[in-house]
Computed example of a mutant assay.
Amino acid sequence: MAQFLSTCFLLLISAQLVKSSGVFELKVHSFTTISSSVCKQSRDCQVFFRVCLNYTQDVISYRLACSNGTGLTGTLNTEQNSISTSAPITVPFNLKWLGTVAVIIEAWNAEPSNDHPTENLNNMIGHFATKINLTIGQKWSQDVHLGEQSELRFSYRVVCDKFYYGDDCSDFCRSRDDPFGHFTCNDTGSRICLPEWKGEYCAEPICLSGCSEEHGFCEAPGQCKCFTGWQGSRCDECVPYPGCLHGTCKLPWQCSCKKGWGGLLCNKESNV
């Protein structure tokens, strides 16, 4: 049963390791038009931002689909000719983070009467595209992009989701204490076994101190259960042949007679 559970656990871990999980975050600190207001003097102006990620080496264009994820803000009211976001725009990803990515940032007129404003390119009031090389981390990177009549100041970072670690967010580790493992996770996602457990996945109990590794085993910490043919509190004593009376053994089922005894079961006195 224990071997079956261990096999199931290894399959579960293997399934987790082929996945990756993280989020790209971008803050718009200011989007400013150089001439006129953001929405060309419209009193009912509402704006939203869209961020696209593409793992591509092609020329960056707003015509590219958001092949590796997209993030949207809600509608934002403009203040004179500048607008910013109070919370980061988030773009989740489930592929390994490759480091280099094309980032497309768009500002759109929300047009309350239109449920699909991005279908009309006339609603786009700002478009910025760049390629970045970004490693996983909590630190924000700053950037400024200038358009023909606009300026965008923003910061960005990429972080792993909870329970995911590593340079590409593909290392999974979640603390557990159950039949499938007994460990916690450190800051890098490495497993730290709980006391009395060992092994790659901390699913192997540590047996009673001194328990013979060759002739004993345990199914729970502190035990020492003997394989057939061995006995004793630490499974380091062989079991002699059944009925052996005045004999000893070095291997199971032997009956080596003590001095003065003979016979198959060492039960006959000997003058030798």
Rank of each mutant, 00 (worst) to 15 (best):
G71Y: 01
L72I: 07
L72D: 10
T73Q: 05
T73W: 03
T73L: 07
T73G: 09
G74C: 05
T75W: 02
L76K: 03
T78P: 03
E79Q: 07
Q80C: 02
N81K: 11
S82C: 06
I83R: 08
S84G: 01
S84Q: 06
T85E: 01
S86T: 13
I89V: 14
T90S: 13
V91S: 05
V91L: 02
F93C: 13
N94V: 13
N94K: 10
K96L: 04
W97E: 08
W97D: 04
G99A: 08
G99M: 04
G99N: 06
V101Q: 04
V101R: 01
A102F: 00
A102Y: 00
A102V: 02
V103T: 04
V103W: 01
I104R: 08
I105S: 01
I105F: 02
A107M: 04
A107S: 09
A107G: 13
A110P: 01
E111R: 14
E111T: 08
P112M: 11
P112F: 04
P112S: 13
P112I: 12
S113H: 03
D115P: 15
H116G: 00
H116E: 13
P117V: 09
P117W: 06
T118A: 11
E119R: 14
E119S: 13
E119F: 11
L121G: 04
L121Q: 13
N122T: 13
N122A: 14
M124I: 07
M124W: 00
M124S: 12
G126E: 06
G126S: 12
G126H: 05
H127V: 15
H127P: 00
F128Q: 01
F128Y: 15
A129I: 00
T130S: 12
N133V: 08
N133W: 01
G137T: 13
G137K: 10
G137F: 09
Q138W: 05
K139M: 11
W140G: 10
S141T: 15
S141D: 07
D143F: 03
D143S: 14
H145A: 11
L146I: 11
G147A: 12
E148M: 03
E148H: 14
E148Y: 09
E148S: 14
Q149H: 11
S150K: 04
S150Y: 05
S150G: 06
E151D: 03
L152V: 13
R153T: 14
F154M: 11
S155Q: 12
Y156S: 08
R157Y: 07
V158M: 13
V158W: 09
V158Q: 10
D161Y: 04
K162V: 15
Y164T: 14
Y164G: 01
Y164D: 03
Y165R: 10
Y165N: 13
D167C: 03
D167A: 15
D167H: 13
D168R: 11
D168V: 14
C169M: 15
S170Q: 08
D171C: 07
D171F: 05
F172P: 02
F172H: 15
F172M: 03
C173Y: 09
C173S: 07
R174S: 06
R174C: 10
S175M: 09
R176W: 03
R176T: 12
R176V: 14
D177C: 04
D177K: 05
D178M: 04
P179R: 01
P179V: 11
F180V: 05
F180C: 03
G181H: 01
G181I: 04
F183N: 00
F183A: 04
T184Y: 00
T184F: 02
C185V: 05
C185R: 02
N186C: 11
D187N: 03
D187Y: 02
D187I: 06
